[in-house]
Amino acid sequence: MTALSKKDLGNSGISEFLIHELGAKIEVYPLAGDASARKYFRIVRDQESFVLMQWEAFKSLSDYPFTNIGSHFSKHNVRLPKIIGSRPEEGLLLLEDLGDLTLERKFWESRNQEDSLNFYEQAIEQLIKIHYPSTADRDENCKAFQIQFDSEKFQWELNYTKQHLIEGLCRIQLSDTEKKQLNNIYLEIADRLHEEDKFISHRDYHSRNLMIKLGKVNVIDFQDARLGPIQYDLVSLLKDSYVNISKEIESHLLNHYLDLRTQYITKKINKDAFDEVYQLQTIQRCFKATGSFASFYQTRGDTRYLHYIPDTLTTVLKALDHFPEFSFLKELILRDEVIGVDYNSL
């Protein structure tokens, strides 16, 4: 890969910032971005490397969600990329380079799922730190305490899928009666999840946001953390669209989580109630994921995520088997215009 020139970087202020932080003898390489509008670059200086993140301008490190929440997590030993330098007015953060080995890549490169189990256990251990000590340290200046998954937010996410997948990509025109049926299901799912106790939720805790460096799992992309049910992050990790974790590994990791939880909360959990919320959260979280995948195609012509839709819908259908009262949603997904689409051909 060819290094970028100053001309390639344009008038963004990146070159001047990097020279100020690292000196003139550096090389800049573009990195593939995530599903957001953020841009990433790998900066090489001699035998060292760093990652530059470019996003919207911000006032200060304490005001910027990434650094604000990251500072709170760091107090509780959550492994995160270290901040090397910043220029808020340019939206620039220079970070520790965690490399290219995601948990997703480790999963697929392993000979069998057991070979990646240690790293998934580490991911659970990092999640415990986010859910319990980080939540117990009630710092109201931390932005994760200022927003939450409430009924309105859960409904918004479900309607996002109706907009981008059902009505958008699949071009289904729901009747007024069908819209009412669907909205009633959305409301019940959202209200039931909203009633759960709330802990800090990473919000996007999947295998592409977990980096392995020197055998240790590190957490990235945590800037949207907010209060929510513990099952939200567990579903994100264990019902992840990017991998296919076996039922045996999923069960083992859930038990690992519940065992570690007792270090912070001594009251024994009602496993049946926990499992019911876990299935309910699977419906909500995974259905929203299909809406996101559809929206990337609908809004910017990005086809890379479309092939994840069928298996993710299958995950939703399996969870819906536990809730016969939501039969209309199951019937909607089972329509040929939804589950029968060849998303790879779009």
Rank of each mutant, 00 (worst) to 15 (best):
K162P: 00
L193A: 02
L334S: 14
I26A: 02
H307R: 14
F199A: 11
H252M: 03
T282G: 06
Q155K: 07
H131T: 15
L313Q: 07
W55N: 10
E21H: 06
C286M: 11
G228F: 11
G91F: 09
D259R: 11
S36Y: 10
G168W: 09
G91N: 09
F222R: 00
I309S: 08
I200N: 03
K180F: 14
H194W: 03
P133D: 14
N209L: 04
Q122L: 08
S116Q: 13
A123R: 01
S175E: 08
K39I: 01
V235M: 10
K129D: 04
K162G: 03
Y232E: 01
P81V: 00
H72V: 00
N183V: 13
K318M: 12
L117G: 01
D233S: 03
E337D: 12
I245K: 12
S74E: 05
V219T: 06
H252L: 07
D176A: 13
F287G: 12
F274E: 07
E178R: 13
L329V: 00
L254V: 12
E276H: 10
T299Y: 04
A294F: 04
E178G: 04
N344L: 15
K271I: 14
Y64D: 00
K6S: 12
P30A: 03
L346N: 07
F73K: 04
N344P: 13
P324F: 15
E90I: 09
Q155H: 02
E250Y: 06
Y132Q: 09
D34E: 14
F326L: 03
D240G: 05
A273T: 14
R285E: 02
R38T: 13
R138G: 05
D115I: 01
V235Q: 00
D321Q: 04
W108V: 10
K59D: 14
G10N: 15
V219Y: 00
P81S: 09
S15V: 11
M1P: 08
D311H: 15
W55K: 13
D197E: 15
L187H: 14
A3V: 02
E331Y: 04
L4Q: 05
H131M: 08
E96D: 07
K143S: 01
G340D: 12
Q263N: 10
L254P: 06
F145A: 07
E152T: 13
D191M: 10
L214E: 09
S241H: 13
D275E: 05
K239N: 10
T312L: 00
N112L: 08
I43K: 02
Y264S: 09
L253H: 01
E27D: 09
L18K: 01
